[in-house]
C-alpha cells in the first residue's frame, strides 16, 4: 500500500515537473535556446502568486493565469532586450546559453535583493489537507497541482497538435527556412513561443508555490533537475519531456520514501549522467544537435 501511495504522489509531482519542463522544451524546440533562466522564471511566477496570496488572499490556483501573464510579459521584455538578435539563427550557439545564464543571475540577484533568500510557501487552506482513498492518503496540495498541471499540458498539446499556429510552431522547430517559405513569419513565431514558454513557467510557479518551498537561489537546483528532464526527453520533444518527468519523479519519490529524502534529487542528476553514457541523444530523441 505504501508503495502505491508513493507512486501516486510521484505521479502528481511528475505532472508538475512536466509542466515546469514543457515551456523549456518548447523554447528549445523553436529557438534552439537552452533557457537556463527558465527555473528563475518559475520562481518569479511563484512570487507573483505569493504576493497575491499574502496581500489579497487570492488562492494560488486562481492566480495561475495572473502568474502566467506576468511572467509571459517579463519573457517578452527579455526576448526583446536580449534574445531577439539570436532568434534569427537556426543553430544553437554556446553564447546563447551563457546569455540565459547571465539572465538567470540577474533575476536571481534582483529577487534575492528584494525579498531575501528566505524559504517561502503559500499556504491556502487545502495545503495541509489530504484525502484518503482506502488506505492511500493523498495530500490535496499535490493532487490539485498535479491535476492542474495535467490540464495545462493537455491544453498545450491540443494547441500544438490542432491549431494552425500550433502546427506553424512545430513546423518552425523542424525547419525554419521551410517554414518561412510557406509564409510563416518565423520571428513572430519565435516571440510567441518564447512568451508561451514563459507563461508555462509562470503557471508552474503558481502551482509550485504551495507544493515546494521556494527562495530565489533555489533555481540552481531546479536548473539541474529540469535540464536532466530535457536531456532525458531528447531535447525539444514534448512527449519525451513529459514521460521523462513522470518516470524520474516516481523513481525519485521511491528513493525518497524507502531510502532517504536527502538523496531524492540525486536521482535526476545521476539519470542525466547515465543517459549521457548510454544514449547521448536522449531516450526519446533522434536529433543529434
Amino acid at each position: 500500500m505504501e508503495f502505491l501511495q508513493v507512486i501516486i504522489l510521484g505521479l502528481c509531482l511528475g505532472f508538475v515537473y512536466a509542466l515546469m519542463v514543457s515551456g523549456l522544451t518548447l523554447i528549445f524546440g523553436v529557438m534552439r535556446i537552452v533557457n537556463l533562466a527558465h527555473p528563475i522564471l518559475i520562481i518569479s511566477g511563484a512570487f507573483v502568486s505569493y504576493w497575491l496570496f499574502i496581500k489579497l488572499g487570492l488562492d494560488p490556483i486562481l492566480s495561475v493565469p495572473a502568474a502566467a501573464l506576468a511572467v509571459a510579459l517579463l519573457g517578452v521584455l527579455l526576448y526583446k532586450l536580449i534574445f531577439e538578435k539570436n532568434a534569427a539563427q537556426q543553430t544553437y550557439s554556446e553564447m546563447t546559453v551563457l546569455l540565459t545564464f547571465g539572465t538567470a543571475m540577474v533575476i536571481d540577484g534582483l529577487l534575492a535583493f528584494l525579498f531575501h533568500n528566505t524559504q517561502r510557501t503559500t499556504s491556502p487552506g487545502y495545503a495541509t489537507d489530504a484525502i484518503f482513498i482506502g488506505d492511500i492518503f493523498i495530500p490535496l496540495a499535490q493532487l490539485y497541482s498535479g491535476i492542474i498541471s495535467l490540464v495545462i499540458i493537455i491544453v498545450l498539446a491540443v494547441f500544438l497538435k490542432y491549431s494552425e499556429f500550433g502546427i506553424a510552431i512545430r513546423a518552425t522547430s523542424q525547419n525554419r527556412t521551410s517554414a518561412e517559405l510557406v509564409g510563416v513569419n518565423v520571428k513572430f513565431v519565435c516571440l510567441i513561443s518564447f512568451a508561451i514558454g514563459c507563461a508555462l513557467a509562470g503557471s508552474a510557479g503558481a502551482l509550485v508555490s504551495f507544493v515546494f518551498s521556494f527562495f530565489p537561489s533555489r533555481h540552481w537546483e531546479w536548473i539541474a533537475i529540469l535540464m536532466s528532464l530535457v536531456v532525458l526527453g531528447g531535447m525539444g520533444s514534448l512527449t519525451g519531456a513529459v514521460v521523462g518527468a513522470l518516470v524520474l519523479s516516481v523513481i525519485s519519490s521511491l528513493v525518497g520514501a524507502f531510502y532517504s529524502p536527502a538523496w531524492s534529487t540525486m536521482v535526476f542528476f545521476l539519470a542525466l549522467f547515465l543517459i549521457l553514457i548510454i544514449r547521448p541523444m536522449g531516450l526519446f530523441g533522434v536529433r543529434t544537435d
Binding site: 523542424q174 525547419n175 517554414a179 518561412e180 509564409g183 513569419n185
Partner: peptide
C-alpha cells in the same frame, strides 16, 4: 523577409525537399 515575398506571390521550392518530415 522570405515570408513576405512568399505572401506576395513568389513560391520557392528549394533543392532539398522542403517538406516537414515530422508532420
Amino acid at each position: 523577409e522570405a515570408y513576405q515575398i512568399m505572401r506576395l506571390g513568389i513560391c520557392f521550392l528549394p533543392q532539398e525537399r522542403a517538406i516537414f518530415p515530422n508532420l
